[in-house]
Design a protein around this nucleic acid. Structure first.
Length: 616
DNA sequence: GTAGGGTTAG
């Protein structure tokens, strides 16, 4: 009968004889390593049938196999079905398993059970437990565990020590971390990496780079992790020179095969504005991951290439190798907002809902607020204030950026009162308005002609809200006076404001002078603008318009001549419309569109209906 | 039989 039970299935043909406990353990380790669940399950049933599960070693190996195959429920069942009280190996394996599957709290519950059961902990227990406490942001727990580690004399173990250093650094407690680090009898590359990352996190880049020097001086070979850590430091510093040096070192050490290392290089080159170098790394990579995609999309976004950003996003969707995630969406949405690419924006919103990102379920997940802010901003910039408001109203956790985005959206589209109402509500929920809020509030007053309110807000900013007005705030108010035809008030504020006026303020004022046909003030403004920014075409155009309106054509040609002498070129304006699968761009007199004939014949019939001249 | 680092957005 026993013979039938162990009848050799295909799977076991790889074994020269029927597997015993030892060979099962070896195979389980391999299954765990390869995350080969199918093979692991076969071994499990074979071991069950053959009575191997009485062995504590089998229990530990099975827990580990299921954990590494992301089937933590099975791992926990095996742990609980342990025939005797689980030993320290089984406890360590299940704690590590929960952590591997991002379940920190259950890991700590098992740790608590282990403590109560009086199972003696060893050097394998603590790296996991320390990680769980710091991951749960439980500082007291971390402190207590550190005390226990010390009591048990495990504080000099490299694995335990580097976990503790890492834990303290998570709380940005460099002094505590440094003390543990200093007391370690030996230091390896992992421990040094923790210090490099810790210094990077608190912005002490010089110290981070010192650690890299010392690590090498100590005779350690930098690892791939050292490279990513160092590159993140250089990226934050914007240090292209040393970034290139690290790129050289990466190549020399053969780390260009590492995905994360290449991703860090892409990011470094992108942030240092070497967009082509970033692209080179990306295209040469044989294996990519979601970071690579996201990073290269980010590079396009940073370079201001919004069309390129959307094209890459489309490529990602078409290739179907990687699914866009929270980071992808947050990177792509500003491009949609910029191009007013509503279709793409809506598609992203739909995918977000399908994936449960930014969900209104009371859970305060990191990233949800940001992505909802990005969605709102996109809707706002596309002119869909109702949709933006719906997102806003359903957000379970709003930060001040959320309020600022809505206020600004209302302001830009002329809903001044909605903007101000929201501002008052923001104050009611005890959020402190900041500089950005007031740019929104003052823009709202500006675009809706709420002159009295605008004036009052500017005077209250400092006194009531403790926010010092910047040049941007003055620009809003000066622009507001100007649009309302109150040129003298605008000029008065321009002359009296405590901050030096820049070309933007003067240009806004110049535009107002043009609008209301005041050539004298326009001349003063134009002189200042041209002084401050001689290469900007806008002021020449405005000035020549002022003279044109007043019929002073000689002066118009003077301005044009001046413009030519300064070698200023006017960038032609354009309009665009999103239609079908693409964005269609049109310039003045532009005849390059493929459907030119159709478009112009439609345009002509529209002109005819409006009673306007026929276009040629 | 069980354990410690990394890279992307805002």
């Amino acid at each position: 009968m026993f013979k039938t039970a162990i009848k050799t299935p295909n799977f076991f043909r790889t074994f020269s004889s029927l597997p015993n406990l030892t060979s099962c353990i070896t195979s389980l380790q391999l299954s765990a390593h390869q995350a080969n669940l199918q093979q692991g399950k076969k071994l499990h049933s074979y071991m069950l049938v053959n009575g191997f599960l009485t062995s504590p070693i089998a229990i530990t190996s099975l827990i580990n196999m299921y954990s590494k195959c992301n089937l933590i429920s099975h791992a926990f069942s095996v742990f609980n079905s342990s025939p005797s009280q689980p030993n320290v190996f089984a406890y360590n394996a299940i704690i590590a398993g929960f952590i591997f599957n991002d379940m920190l709290k259950p890991a700590l519950q098992v740790y608590e059970k282990m403590r109560l059961a009086g199972v003696t902990m060893d050097k394998f227990t603590f790296p996991c437990v320390v990680k769980a406490f710091s991951g749960c942001e439980n500082f007291l727990g971390l402190k207590k565990v550190h005390g226990l580690v010390f009591k048990l004399g495990l504080d000099h173990d490299l694995f335990v020590g580097s976990a503790v250093v890492h834990g303290y650094l998570k709380f940005e407690l460099m002094a505590d971390a440094h003390q543990v680090f200093d007391e370690m009898p030996d230091r390896d590359v992992v421990l040094w990496n923790a210090m490099i990352n810790g210094y990077a996190q608190i912005g002490e880049f010089g110290n981070a780079l010192d650690c890299l020097q010392k690590l090498r001086a100590d005779g350690n070979a930098p690892s791939r992790f050292t490279m990513t850590g160092t590159l993140s430091v250089l990226t934050l510093k914007g240090d292209l020179y040393n970034g290139k040096a690290i790129h050289g070192l990466v190549a020399k050490m053969g780390y260009l095969s590492g995905i994360a290392v290449c991703n860090a290089l892409i990011d470094m080159y992108g942030k240092c504005k070497c967009f082509l170098d970033a692209l080179d790394i990306f295209e040469v990579m044989e294996v990519k991951d979601i970071y690579s995609w996201n990073s290269i999309i980010g590079v396009h976004q940073q370079s201001g290439d919004h069309e390129g950003t959307l094209k890459l996003f489309d490529r990602m969707l078409r290739d179907k190798v990687f699914c866009p995630d929270l980071v992808t969406f947050t990177t792509v949405l500003p491009a949609c907002a910029h191009l007013a690419a509503l279709r793409h924006g809506k598609e992203i919103h739909a995918s977000m809902i399908t994936k449960g990102l930014g969900k209104d379920d009371g859970e305060d997940r990191v990233g949800d607020t940001y992505i909802n802010n990005a969605i709102m901003d996109m809707y706002g910039k596309c002119g869909c204030m109702r949709e933006a408001r719906l997102v806003f109203d359903h957000m379970s956790s709003k930060d001040s950026a959320s309020w600022n985005i809505m206020i600004m959206g209302y302001a830009m589209h002329g809903f001044g009162n909605d903007a101000l109402n929201l501002f008052h509500k923001m104050c009611e929920v005890n959020l402190t308005p900041d500089e950005v809020t007031f740019v929104g509030v003052l823009s709202a007053c500006n675009h809706s002609g709420l002159v009295k309110e605008g004036e009052e807000f500017l005077s209250q900013m400092k006194s009531k809200y403790k926010v010092s007005p910047t040049v941007e705030h003055y620009t809003c108010v000066i622009d507001m006076f100007g649009r309302a035809g109150l040129l003298n008030q605008a000029y008065g504020l321009l002359s009296e404001m405590p901050i030096e006026a820049n070309s933007v303020v003067w240009r806004a004022f110049l535009a107002a002078c043009r609008l209301h046909g005041d050539a004298n003030l326009a001349e003063i403004a134009a002189r200042r603008v041209i002084d401050l920014e001689p290469e900007h075409c806008g002021s020449y155009v405005l000035m020549s318009n002022v003279y044109g309106t007043l019929g002073r054509y000689e002066e118009v040609s003077d301005v044009r001549l001046n413009m030519r002498q300064q070698n200023v070129k006017k960038t032609p304006g354009c309009s665009w419309i999103e239609f079908g699968n693409g964005v269609h761009v049109f310039g003045t007199g532009d005849r390059t569109h493929l459907d030119e004939d159709l478009i112009y014949s439609e345009l002509n019939s529209l002109y005819m209906s409006m009673g306007l001249c026929h276009m040629t």
